[in-house]
Amino acid sequence: MSIRTSYKLRLMRKRWRIRAFRKRRELKQIVNNTAKIKPDDILVFSTLRNERRRLPFFLKYYRDLGVKHFIIVDNNSNDGSAEYLMEQPDVSLWWSKASYKRARFGVDWLNWLQMRHGHNHWTLTVDVDEFFVYPFCDTRPLNALTDWLDASSIRSFSAMLLDMYPKGSIDDAVYHEGQNPIEVAPWFDSANYSFKKNKEIGNLWIQGGPRARMFFADKPERAPALNKIPLVKWNRNYVYASSTHMLLPRGLNQVYDEWGGEKASGCLLHAKFLDTFTEKSHEELARKQHYANSHEYKAYYTTLKEKPDIWCKWSEKYINWRQLEILGLMSKGNWA
Protein backbone atom coordinates (compact mmCIF):
# COMPACT_ATOMS: atom_id res chain seq x y z
CA MET A 1 0.00 0.00 0.00
CA SER A 2 1.44 3.34 -1.00
CA ILE A 3 1.84 6.14 1.50
CA ARG A 4 -0.73 8.04 -0.49
CA THR A 5 -3.53 5.49 -0.16
CA SER A 6 -2.55 4.87 3.39
CA TYR A 7 -2.95 8.55 4.13
CA LYS A 8 -6.17 8.73 2.19
CA LEU A 9 -7.67 5.93 4.24
CA ARG A 10 -6.47 7.58 7.39
CA LEU A 11 -8.28 10.75 6.42
CA MET A 12 -11.36 8.74 5.58
CA ARG A 13 -11.28 7.11 8.98
CA LYS A 14 -10.84 10.46 10.69
CA ARG A 15 -13.73 11.80 8.72
CA TRP A 16 -16.06 9.04 9.86
CA ARG A 17 -14.91 9.55 13.42
CA ILE A 18 -15.61 13.27 13.32
CA ARG A 19 -18.94 12.57 11.76
CA ALA A 20 -19.79 10.10 14.51
CA PHE A 21 -18.74 12.69 17.05
CA ARG A 22 -21.03 15.30 15.54
CA LYS A 23 -23.92 12.90 15.26
CA ARG A 24 -23.77 12.20 18.99
CA ARG A 25 -26.10 15.16 19.47
CA GLU A 26 -28.89 13.36 17.72
CA LEU A 27 -28.87 10.72 20.43
CA LYS A 28 -30.85 11.14 23.57
CA GLN A 29 -29.93 8.88 26.42
CA ILE A 30 -32.90 7.03 27.85
CA VAL A 31 -31.38 4.38 30.13
CA ASN A 32 -27.72 4.18 30.95
CA ASN A 33 -26.63 0.94 32.54
CA THR A 34 -23.13 1.11 31.13
CA ALA A 35 -21.66 1.44 34.61
CA LYS A 36 -22.46 -2.25 35.02
CA ILE A 37 -20.12 -3.22 32.17
CA LYS A 38 -17.13 -5.19 33.43
CA PRO A 39 -13.75 -5.17 31.68
CA ASP A 40 -14.09 -8.54 29.92
CA ASP A 41 -17.76 -8.27 28.95
CA ILE A 42 -18.87 -8.87 25.40
CA LEU A 43 -21.21 -6.13 24.17
CA VAL A 44 -23.93 -6.07 21.53
CA PHE A 45 -24.54 -2.85 19.58
CA SER A 46 -27.71 -2.43 17.59
CA THR A 47 -29.99 0.11 15.97
CA LEU A 48 -33.66 -0.67 15.58
CA ARG A 49 -37.05 0.68 14.71
CA ASN A 50 -40.38 -0.95 15.57
CA GLU A 51 -39.10 -4.40 16.44
CA ARG A 52 -41.10 -5.04 19.59
CA ARG A 53 -42.22 -8.48 18.52
CA ARG A 54 -38.66 -9.67 17.82
CA LEU A 55 -36.96 -8.21 20.87
CA PRO A 56 -37.59 -10.88 23.53
CA PHE A 57 -36.04 -13.65 21.48
CA PHE A 58 -33.24 -11.43 20.23
CA LEU A 59 -32.18 -10.56 23.77
CA LYS A 60 -32.52 -14.15 24.93
CA TYR A 61 -30.48 -15.51 22.05
CA TYR A 62 -27.51 -13.26 22.76
CA ARG A 63 -27.78 -13.56 26.53
CA ASP A 64 -27.55 -17.33 26.09
CA LEU A 65 -24.40 -16.94 24.04
CA GLY A 66 -22.88 -15.00 26.90
CA VAL A 67 -23.35 -11.37 25.87
CA LYS A 68 -23.33 -9.24 28.99
CA HIS A 69 -24.64 -5.92 27.82
CA PHE A 70 -26.71 -4.45 24.99
CA ILE A 71 -26.24 -0.92 23.70
CA ILE A 72 -29.20 -0.03 21.55
CA VAL A 73 -30.29 2.99 19.57
CA ASP A 74 -34.01 3.24 19.09
CA ASN A 75 -34.85 5.20 15.98
CA ASN A 76 -38.18 6.60 17.06
CA SER A 77 -40.17 3.39 17.43
CA ASN A 78 -43.85 3.72 18.16
CA ASP A 79 -44.71 0.11 18.93
CA GLY A 80 -43.43 -0.08 22.48
CA SER A 81 -39.92 -1.28 21.67
CA ALA A 82 -38.38 1.46 23.79
CA GLU A 83 -40.64 0.78 26.75
CA TYR A 84 -39.75 -2.89 26.63
CA LEU A 85 -36.03 -2.21 26.43
CA MET A 86 -36.17 0.26 29.30
CA GLU A 87 -37.17 -2.55 31.63
CA GLN A 88 -34.16 -4.70 30.80
CA PRO A 89 -31.35 -4.57 33.35
CA ASP A 90 -28.62 -5.25 30.80
CA VAL A 91 -29.69 -2.77 28.15
CA SER A 92 -28.52 0.80 27.73
CA LEU A 93 -30.85 2.69 25.47
CA TRP A 94 -30.47 5.76 23.33
CA TRP A 95 -33.22 7.30 21.32
CA SER A 96 -33.19 9.37 18.18
CA LYS A 97 -35.80 10.71 15.89
CA ALA A 98 -33.24 12.04 13.44
CA SER A 99 -32.82 10.62 9.98
CA TYR A 100 -31.59 7.05 9.83
CA LYS A 101 -30.31 7.70 6.35
CA ARG A 102 -28.34 10.78 7.30
CA ALA A 103 -26.73 8.90 10.15
CA ARG A 104 -25.49 6.60 7.37
CA PHE A 105 -28.07 3.98 8.31
CA GLY A 106 -27.24 4.13 11.99
CA VAL A 107 -23.51 3.59 11.52
CA ASP A 108 -22.58 7.05 12.78
CA TRP A 109 -24.60 6.60 15.95
CA LEU A 110 -23.12 3.21 16.68
CA ASN A 111 -19.60 4.38 15.85
CA TRP A 112 -20.02 7.04 18.47
CA LEU A 113 -21.38 4.68 21.10
CA GLN A 114 -18.64 2.17 20.30
CA MET A 115 -16.05 4.87 20.69
CA ARG A 116 -17.47 5.68 24.09
CA HIS A 117 -18.33 2.25 25.45
CA GLY A 118 -16.76 -0.35 23.22
CA HIS A 119 -13.07 0.41 23.73
CA ASN A 120 -11.13 -2.78 24.60
CA HIS A 121 -14.27 -4.91 24.55
CA TRP A 122 -15.30 -7.56 22.09
CA THR A 123 -18.25 -5.96 20.35
CA LEU A 124 -20.89 -7.63 18.27
CA THR A 125 -22.77 -5.27 15.97
CA VAL A 126 -25.95 -6.90 14.74
CA ASP A 127 -29.48 -6.02 13.75
CA VAL A 128 -32.43 -7.41 15.61
CA ASP A 129 -33.13 -9.90 12.81
CA GLU A 130 -29.54 -11.22 12.69
CA PHE A 131 -28.46 -14.24 14.69
CA PHE A 132 -24.77 -14.93 15.07
CA VAL A 133 -23.61 -18.50 14.52
CA TYR A 134 -19.97 -19.49 14.94
CA PRO A 135 -18.05 -22.77 15.00
CA PHE A 136 -18.92 -24.85 18.07
CA CYS A 137 -21.63 -22.38 19.12
CA ASP A 138 -23.70 -25.27 20.46
CA THR A 139 -20.99 -26.38 22.87
CA ARG A 140 -18.84 -23.35 23.53
CA PRO A 141 -19.94 -19.92 24.73
CA LEU A 142 -19.03 -16.78 22.85
CA ASN A 143 -16.16 -15.94 25.17
CA ALA A 144 -14.48 -19.23 24.23
CA LEU A 145 -14.31 -17.80 20.73
CA THR A 146 -13.15 -14.36 21.80
CA ASP A 147 -10.51 -15.85 24.12
CA TRP A 148 -9.24 -17.91 21.25
CA LEU A 149 -9.22 -14.89 18.95
CA ASP A 150 -7.30 -12.95 21.57
CA ALA A 151 -4.79 -15.75 21.94
CA SER A 152 -4.39 -15.89 18.16
CA SER A 153 -3.97 -12.10 17.90
CA ILE A 154 -7.05 -11.83 15.68
CA ARG A 155 -9.01 -8.61 16.05
CA SER A 156 -12.02 -9.14 13.82
CA PHE A 157 -14.22 -12.06 12.88
CA SER A 158 -16.25 -12.44 9.72
CA ALA A 159 -19.83 -13.68 9.62
CA MET A 160 -21.55 -13.67 6.26
CA LEU A 161 -25.20 -12.72 6.14
CA LEU A 162 -27.23 -15.82 5.36
CA ASP A 163 -30.76 -14.96 4.27
CA MET A 164 -33.29 -17.36 5.74
CA TYR A 165 -36.75 -17.80 4.26
CA PRO A 166 -39.93 -19.78 4.78
CA LYS A 167 -41.49 -22.30 2.45
CA GLY A 168 -44.49 -20.76 0.77
CA SER A 169 -45.62 -17.17 0.82
CA ILE A 170 -43.90 -14.81 3.23
CA ASP A 171 -47.23 -13.60 4.54
CA ASP A 172 -48.02 -17.08 5.80
CA ALA A 173 -44.83 -17.24 7.88
CA VAL A 174 -46.41 -15.84 11.02
CA TYR A 175 -43.95 -14.98 13.72
CA HIS A 176 -45.01 -14.90 17.35
CA GLU A 177 -43.25 -13.02 20.08
CA GLY A 178 -40.62 -15.08 21.87
CA GLN A 179 -40.40 -17.64 19.10
CA ASN A 180 -37.16 -18.54 17.37
CA PRO A 181 -37.60 -16.95 13.93
CA ILE A 182 -35.40 -19.63 12.38
CA GLU A 183 -38.20 -22.11 13.12
CA VAL A 184 -40.51 -20.05 10.97
CA ALA A 185 -38.00 -19.40 8.21
CA PRO A 186 -35.53 -22.29 8.26
CA TRP A 187 -34.49 -22.40 4.58
CA PHE A 188 -31.44 -20.95 2.88
CA ASP A 189 -29.39 -21.02 -0.34
CA SER A 190 -26.28 -23.08 0.14
CA ALA A 191 -24.06 -22.24 -2.84
CA ASN A 192 -25.34 -19.27 -4.72
CA TYR A 193 -22.90 -16.54 -3.85
CA SER A 194 -20.34 -14.46 -5.68
CA PHE A 195 -17.24 -12.93 -4.18
CA LYS A 196 -15.26 -9.90 -5.21
CA LYS A 197 -12.45 -8.10 -3.51
CA ASN A 198 -12.61 -4.41 -2.76
CA LYS A 199 -9.05 -3.40 -3.67
CA GLU A 200 -9.06 -0.15 -1.76
CA ILE A 201 -10.25 -1.24 1.65
CA GLY A 202 -9.48 -4.92 1.26
CA ASN A 203 -12.84 -6.35 2.24
CA LEU A 204 -14.65 -9.01 0.26
CA TRP A 205 -17.88 -8.06 -1.41
CA ILE A 206 -20.32 -10.93 -1.29
CA GLN A 207 -23.59 -10.97 -3.18
CA GLY A 208 -26.13 -13.57 -4.11
CA GLY A 209 -28.49 -15.79 -2.18
CA PRO A 210 -32.26 -15.64 -2.35
CA ARG A 211 -32.38 -11.87 -2.53
CA ALA A 212 -30.31 -11.78 -5.71
CA ARG A 213 -32.20 -14.76 -7.10
CA MET A 214 -35.68 -13.38 -6.43
CA PHE A 215 -35.44 -9.61 -6.41
CA PHE A 216 -32.33 -8.62 -8.35
CA ALA A 217 -32.11 -11.13 -11.19
CA ASP A 218 -32.24 -8.34 -13.77
CA LYS A 219 -29.74 -6.07 -12.00
CA PRO A 220 -27.39 -8.37 -10.11
CA GLU A 221 -24.81 -5.67 -9.50
CA ARG A 222 -27.30 -3.93 -7.22
CA ALA A 223 -28.01 -6.97 -5.09
CA PRO A 224 -27.33 -6.22 -1.43
CA ALA A 225 -23.94 -6.97 0.12
CA LEU A 226 -23.79 -10.03 2.37
CA ASN A 227 -20.28 -9.66 3.75
CA LYS A 228 -20.24 -8.66 7.40
CA ILE A 229 -17.63 -8.34 10.09
CA PRO A 230 -19.78 -8.06 13.19
CA LEU A 231 -17.38 -9.25 15.90
CA VAL A 232 -14.49 -6.90 16.62
CA LYS A 233 -12.17 -6.33 19.53
CA TRP A 234 -13.00 -2.67 19.54
CA ASN A 235 -10.57 0.16 19.83
CA ARG A 236 -11.73 3.74 19.95
CA ASN A 237 -9.82 4.47 16.77
CA TYR A 238 -11.80 1.97 14.72
CA VAL A 239 -14.84 2.86 12.63
CA TYR A 240 -17.35 0.96 10.58
CA ALA A 241 -17.02 2.57 7.17
CA SER A 242 -20.24 1.25 5.70
CA SER A 243 -22.75 -0.66 7.77
CA THR A 244 -20.89 -3.63 9.25
CA HIS A 245 -19.62 -4.53 5.78
CA MET A 246 -16.26 -2.88 6.15
CA LEU A 247 -14.03 -1.39 8.77
CA LEU A 248 -11.18 1.04 9.03
CA PRO A 249 -8.26 0.68 9.56
CA ARG A 250 -8.35 -1.69 6.70
CA GLY A 251 -6.32 -4.47 8.31
CA LEU A 252 -9.52 -5.38 10.13
CA ASN A 253 -11.07 -6.43 6.84
CA GLN A 254 -8.46 -9.17 6.35
CA VAL A 255 -10.78 -11.86 7.60
CA TYR A 256 -10.06 -14.18 4.68
CA ASP A 257 -7.00 -16.16 3.67
CA GLU A 258 -5.49 -15.52 0.26
CA TRP A 259 -3.07 -18.44 0.12
CA GLY A 260 -5.55 -21.26 -0.14
CA GLY A 261 -6.27 -21.75 3.55
CA GLU A 262 -9.44 -21.03 5.46
CA LYS A 263 -9.69 -18.67 8.37
CA ALA A 264 -12.31 -19.26 11.00
CA SER A 265 -15.62 -17.57 10.26
CA GLY A 266 -19.28 -17.68 11.19
CA CYS A 267 -22.66 -16.72 9.78
CA LEU A 268 -25.36 -14.24 10.61
CA LEU A 269 -28.67 -16.00 10.11
CA HIS A 270 -30.82 -13.26 8.69
CA ALA A 271 -34.47 -13.78 9.54
CA LYS A 272 -35.80 -10.98 7.41
CA PHE A 273 -38.43 -12.84 5.44
CA LEU A 274 -41.23 -13.26 7.96
CA ASP A 275 -44.78 -11.97 7.85
CA THR A 276 -43.45 -8.69 9.23
CA PHE A 277 -41.54 -8.13 6.03
CA THR A 278 -44.29 -7.06 3.63
CA GLU A 279 -45.54 -4.48 6.04
CA LYS A 280 -42.02 -3.34 6.78
CA SER A 281 -41.01 -2.95 3.16
CA HIS A 282 -44.16 -0.90 2.66
CA GLU A 283 -43.27 1.39 5.48
CA GLU A 284 -39.59 1.63 4.62
CA LEU A 285 -40.45 2.54 1.07
CA ALA A 286 -42.61 5.38 2.30
CA ARG A 287 -39.93 6.58 4.73
CA LYS A 288 -37.21 6.53 2.05
CA GLN A 289 -34.60 5.98 4.73
CA HIS A 290 -32.63 3.18 3.17
CA TYR A 291 -29.49 2.73 1.17
CA ALA A 292 -29.24 4.15 -2.38
CA ASN A 293 -32.72 5.63 -2.59
CA SER A 294 -34.15 2.51 -1.03
CA HIS A 295 -33.74 0.73 -4.37
CA GLU A 296 -33.56 -2.47 -2.38
CA TYR A 297 -36.98 -1.91 -0.91
CA LYS A 298 -38.40 -0.87 -4.26
CA ALA A 299 -37.30 -4.17 -5.67
CA TYR A 300 -38.83 -6.06 -2.75
CA TYR A 301 -42.07 -4.18 -3.09
CA THR A 302 -42.58 -4.87 -6.78
CA THR A 303 -41.82 -8.56 -6.40
CA LEU A 304 -43.74 -9.00 -3.19
CA LYS A 305 -46.95 -7.85 -4.79
CA GLU A 306 -46.92 -11.14 -6.68
CA LYS A 307 -46.70 -13.12 -3.44
CA PRO A 308 -43.65 -15.10 -4.50
CA ASP A 309 -42.31 -18.30 -3.00
CA ILE A 310 -38.61 -17.84 -2.33
CA TRP A 311 -38.29 -21.52 -1.56
CA CYS A 312 -37.16 -23.85 -4.34
CA LYS A 313 -36.55 -27.56 -4.31
CA TRP A 314 -32.81 -27.05 -3.89
CA SER A 315 -33.18 -24.96 -0.75
CA GLU A 316 -31.43 -26.30 2.33
CA LYS A 317 -33.11 -26.53 5.69
CA TYR A 318 -31.07 -25.22 8.59
CA ILE A 319 -29.93 -27.78 11.13
CA ASN A 320 -26.85 -26.45 12.91
CA TRP A 321 -23.50 -24.78 12.41
CA ARG A 322 -21.83 -28.02 11.36
CA GLN A 323 -24.13 -28.17 8.37
CA LEU A 324 -23.10 -24.64 7.38
CA GLU A 325 -19.47 -25.66 7.83
CA ILE A 326 -19.81 -28.71 5.61
CA LEU A 327 -21.60 -26.67 2.95
CA GLY A 328 -18.68 -24.26 2.96
CA LEU A 329 -20.61 -21.21 4.12
CA MET A 330 -18.45 -20.85 7.21
CA SER A 331 -15.28 -22.44 8.50
CA LYS A 332 -13.68 -23.70 11.68
CA GLY A 333 -10.32 -22.57 10.38
CA ASN A 334 -7.70 -23.88 12.79
CA TRP A 335 -10.01 -23.75 15.77
CA ALA A 336 -10.56 -27.32 16.82
Binding site: S158, A159, M160, F195, K197, L204, I206, N227, V255, Y256, D257, E258, W259, G260, G261, E262, K263, A264, S265, G328, L329, M330, S331, K332, G333, N334, W335, A336
Partner: peptide, 23 residues
Protein backbone atom coordinates in the same frame (compact mmCIF):
# COMPACT_ATOMS: atom_id res chain seq x y z
CA UNK B 1 -7.60 -28.22 11.77
CA UNK B 2 -4.16 -27.15 10.64
CA UNK B 3 -4.74 -28.63 7.22
CA UNK B 4 -7.97 -26.66 6.92
CA UNK B 5 -6.29 -23.47 7.97
CA UNK B 6 -3.32 -23.82 5.65
CA UNK B 7 -4.68 -25.68 2.60
CA UNK B 8 -8.42 -25.27 2.86
CA UNK B 9 -11.03 -27.16 0.90
CA UNK B 10 -10.27 -27.47 -2.77
CA UNK B 11 -12.70 -25.68 -5.01
CA UNK B 12 -14.31 -23.62 -2.27
CA UNK B 13 -14.55 -19.86 -2.37
CA UNK B 14 -16.09 -18.37 0.72
CA UNK B 15 -16.02 -15.44 3.10
CA UNK B 16 -12.83 -16.61 4.77
CA UNK B 17 -11.18 -18.37 1.81
CA UNK B 18 -10.51 -16.20 -1.19
CA UNK B 19 -7.31 -17.49 -2.79
CA UNK B 20 -5.23 -15.37 -5.09
CA UNK B 21 -4.71 -16.60 -8.61
CA UNK B 22 -2.67 -19.76 -8.54
CA UNK B 23 -3.12 -20.41 -4.80
Amino acid sequence: AIERRTRGRTGLTMQSRFPRDGW
